[in-house]
Design a protein around this nucleic acid. Structure first.
Lengths: 170, 170
DNA sequence: GCCATATTGTCAGTATACTGTCAATTAAAT
DNA sequence: ATTTAATTGACAGTATACTGACAATATGGC
């Protein structure tokens, strides 16, 4: 017969779970980013979107979502905010009336250039407590893990999608 | 004079940043949790809260927030939802009219017992793609990093706070 | 050309997260 | 004891995230 004796629950069920640790590190990462970049009025997500629009001028929202693996619905609001701050502009695509193409404004390119050192500082700070060798190990394992689990999230990363707006066929 | 020549921005500014990788892993971790625990109507945060109330019956919201390092404001809504699902109850504290003490209901204890295997499965799955030795390494480094960066987040983990409701002096 | 299908942006709804504020209440200072 | 501080739960406001739906538009099969 199946034993229904309940295992005594301890806080280890939370503290040692990788999911909990990833959540904590995400909180910490965002906190450090916001702290270092306070003067630029850009969130981590907005920064990632801005970088991607910079490297892929004329990308549309759907492809942008695939390239940084952010939800399409979420990205709509992010784009709105970047547009409100006048860091990007949206232009209707001539060949497809559904699509709106994204471009950096001068202000957007400017803020991106200026914020870079602060972003670097935040990224450095979050791994700082580890020994240099451990930083490399963690980053390597984390990169592998994200890549190998790519399909597990709703919006898998599709870096190659970024090239489609340049006229490739899928 | 300072060179204002802008460094060409590449997607590496996003893809290799630890902050981005932590965000991706958090997304993936939540997605796997939700998938494995679909039948239980509990989110990762609600699960963590339930575990903590189980191991600390009679804890209040502020101490709960310190023990799992979740924001106090956020936790208010989480508690409301757990209460709506009748997994917990809130009782006013006799000695302090501000405080409401949290307790598991029978249904709460039941769901916690039943969900455990699915939670375990989700936690296992998210590290599965790595070799066993690498899983151990990553978990160890992650645990260290979260601990060493504890003060960087708005709500640092204060595990010892959990004992106060048992009558300690701070 | 027509029709089933897919894509795009958008929206409503729910659930974290954080900032800042507030009233009620308690504790501390003197 | 009275003023001052701090604490507690709550709230409003902003910003990710995901689900599921929708109209407008494109595309494919035929």
């Amino acid at each position: 017969m199946p034993s229904s004796k309940p295992t005594p629950v301890t806080m280890d069920a939370v503290y040692t779970a990788p999911g909990y640790l990833f959540r904590r590190m995400q909180q910490i990462a965002v906190a450090l980013f916001i702290e270092e970049c306070r003067s630029f009025d850009l969130t981590p997500v907005q920064y990632a979107a801005l970088v991607t629009i910079s490297t892929h001028p004329g990308i549309d929202a759907t492809r942008l979502s695939a390239v940084i693996a952010f939800d399409r619905s979420t990205l709509g609001n992010v784009i709105e905010r970047l547009q409100a701050k006048e860091f990007i502009v949206r232009k209707p695509a001539p060949e497809d009336k559904r699509v709106k193409l994204l471009y950096l404004t001068k202000a957007g390119a400017g803020v991106l250039n200026e914020i870079m050192p602060s972003v670097e500082k935040a990224q450095t700070r979050m791994l700082q407590p580890l020994k240099p060798a451990d930083r490399k190990t963690l980053l390597s394992l984390l990169t592998q893990l994200v890549d190998l689990n790519n399909e597990a999230s709703r919006v898998p990363l599709r870096a190659e999608d970024a090239l489609e707006h340049l006229g490739r066929s899928g």
